[in-house]
Every structure is written in structure tokens, then in C-alpha cells.
């Protein structure tokens, strides 16, 4: 029995192809037994360790160039400290307990703000995407609010919510809200009408139609919206912490600028890059899982 045969078809086929592939395609792709006997060769660039190693090439080169220029004295120490000095600054800050605290509080702010903003984005995006009335009512206003640059909110939020956690979390939530809201509402509006009609023809209505057809159809779009929102949350975090804070990586940046600690500035930038990349990779794993399941 060769039941495994169609599994060798690429899983990345565009969704529409199922409609247009005639019987002959499945036949031609599966018939020769020899082709099913061994797994097809995967291209070199898609193997796990090559992908990981390949991604590390550029950072290593940059580090080497950095080390070289500082060792040769191309820049003064005040312009560009050596990697070792930045490392030492990190070790010192870590020993004093500040580094861990700053990274933790920044990550916490991003995660809470992201969770709140994304949840609101999904809710309002669903409302606007599904209901014509809500679209007419909310879409223009939300579009206008979206056009406000992030920094414009800061003075208002500080006056209203004081320089506490609330003002920062609100700003980050605003930042995370819009990518999710936009992708969810647009995706719901563009769910394949034929599928929705088929669902209706088989007696699905309202909530059951939503959970059986519309929601699964937009999950890949929702997840990519979440990924954008997370990146946006880190952006807004730094905006919030640069201006009004006493802790966090943004505070480390502005504090180090005032004290002329360029090593710590570089440290903060590198940490932001690493933390942002790590959280993004986590959502990326979720995205891959969701795409396998729903797309």
C-alpha cells in the first residue's frame, strides 16, 4: 500500500492549487516507486544547522571588524570602545544586579503591553472585519489615531497617567494594537467568499460560521500581525523609556548618554537586538506551528 505517497507533495503548494491540479498531477507526482523510496534531497540552504550557522556569519564578521578597528586605533575610545570593554561593562552592570533588573523590567513591559494591545487589536479587528456597521463607525477614527506618531502620545500619557508603569504600558499597547487590528480586520474582510458561502450552504451561521470558516481562514494572517506587533512593542518601549523612566534598557541608554558611557550604550543596543530577536523567534515558532495546522 502506498498511502504515504501524496505526503511527498510539497506542503508549501499555494492554497489555490488544489483546485486546479487535475488528477493527472497527483498521479505523475506519485507513480514512480523509486521516487517515494527515499526522501527527496533538501536544498543545502534549508538544512537546520546550515541555516543557524549561516545566520551567525555576519555577526561574527561585524565583531571581527569591530575588534580589528579598535585594536588598530582607527577610532578613539570615546567614539568606539572595544568589544572587550562593552563586555566588561555588561559584567559590571550584571554584578551590581542592575543589568538583570533592567532587562527584566523592559521585557515585562513589552510582554504586558503587547498582550493588552494584541488582545484589543484582535477584538476590534474582528468587529470591524465582520460587521459592516462597525467598519463604518470605527474604521475612520482608528485610522486617524493610527496616523499619530508614537512620540506624540508621550506628553499626554505622562500628564494623564504620570511617570509610572501605566503610561509606558499604554504607549506599548498602542504600538502593539495597530498591526494586529489592521491585519485582522483586513484578513476577515478578505476571507474567500466561496468558502464562506459553502459554509452557509451547509447550514453554518453566525458563531458557528465564524469558528468553522472565518477564524481558521485568518489565523495565519493574525499570527503574522502578532509578529509585527511584537516588533512594534519593542520600538515603543524604547520611546517610552527614553523619555520618562528610572529603569529599563531605554533608561540605560539615556542615562549612559548623559554620563558619556558609550560602552553601556552599545551594550543596551546589543541587548535590545538580542531580546527582540529572541521574542520574535518565539512567535516565529508559534507561526510555523499555526501555519502547519491552519494553512
Amino acid at each position: 500500500m502506498t498511502e504515504t505517497v501524496p505526503r511527498t507533495l510539497p506542503r508549501t503548494l499555494p492554497r489555490t492549487s488544489a483546485r486546479t491540479v487535475p488528477d493527472a498531477t497527483a498521479f505523475a507526482a506519485s507513480a514512480p516507486a523509486a521516487r517515494t523510496a527515499r526522501a527527496p534531497r533538501r536544498p543545502l540552504a534549508s538544512r537546520g544547522w546550515i541555516a543557524l550557522g549561516g545566520g551567525a556569519v555576519l555577526p561574527v564578521l561585524i565583531l571581527a571588524a569591530w575588534q580589528l578597528t579598535t585594536a588598530l586605533g582607527v577610532f578613539t575610545m570615546a567614539q568606539l570602545p572595544s568589544p572587550a570593554m562593552v563586555w566588561q561593562a555588561g559584567v559590571d552592570l550584571f554584578a551590581s544586579g542592575l543589568l538583570g533588573q533592567y532587562a527584566a523590567i523592559s521585557t515585562q513591559r513589552v510582554l504586558i503591553g503587547f498582550a493588552v494591545g494584541a488582545a484589543l487589536g484582535i477584538a476590534l479587528g474582528a468587529l470591524v472585519g465582520l460587521s459592516r456597521a462597525a467598519d463604518v463607525l470605527f474604521a475612520p477614527t482608528l485610522g486617524a489615531i493610527r496616523a499619530v506618531p508614537s512620540l506624540a502620545w508621550v506628553p499626554l500619557l505622562i500628564l494623564w497617567l504620570k511617570i509610572g508603569e501605566e503610561s509606558k504600558l499604554t504607549l506599548i499597547a498602542i504600538g502593539a494594537f495597530f498591526p494586529v487590528y489592521t491585519t485582522v480586520s483586513a484578513a476577515l474582510r478578505h476571507v474567500d467568499r466561496q468558502l464562506v458561502e459553502a459554509g452557509r450552504a451547509f447550514g453554518l451561521r453566525r458563531a458557528r460560521l465564524f469558528t468553522a470558516v472565518q477564524l481558521p481562514a485568518v489565523i495565519p494572517a493574525v499570527v503574522s500581525g502578532l509578529r509585527l506587533a511584537l516588533a512594534q512593542a519593542w520600538l515603543f518601549l524604547v520611546a517610552a523609556e527614553l523619555i520618562a523612566s528610572s529603569m529599563g534598557l531605554g533608561f540605560l541608554l539615556i542615562d549612559s548618554q548623559n554620563n558619556g558611557r558609550i560602552d553601556r550604550i552599545l551594550l543596551a543596543i546589543i541587548l535590545l537586538a538580542i531580546l527582540g530577536k529572541l521574542t520574535d523567534a518565539a512567535v516565529g515558532l508559534f507561526e510555523r506551528w499555526a501555519n502547519r495546522k491552519w494553512a
Binding site: R7, L9, A18, R19, P22, A26
Partner: peptide, 8 residues
């Protein structure tokens, strides 16, 4: 997507 048009 893993079956042909006729099967679908």
C-alpha cells in the same frame, strides 16, 4: 491541497 482536483 494534497489531493487532486478530481478527488477534491
Amino acid at each position: 491541497q494534497a489531493i487532486s482536483g478530481g478527488m477534491a
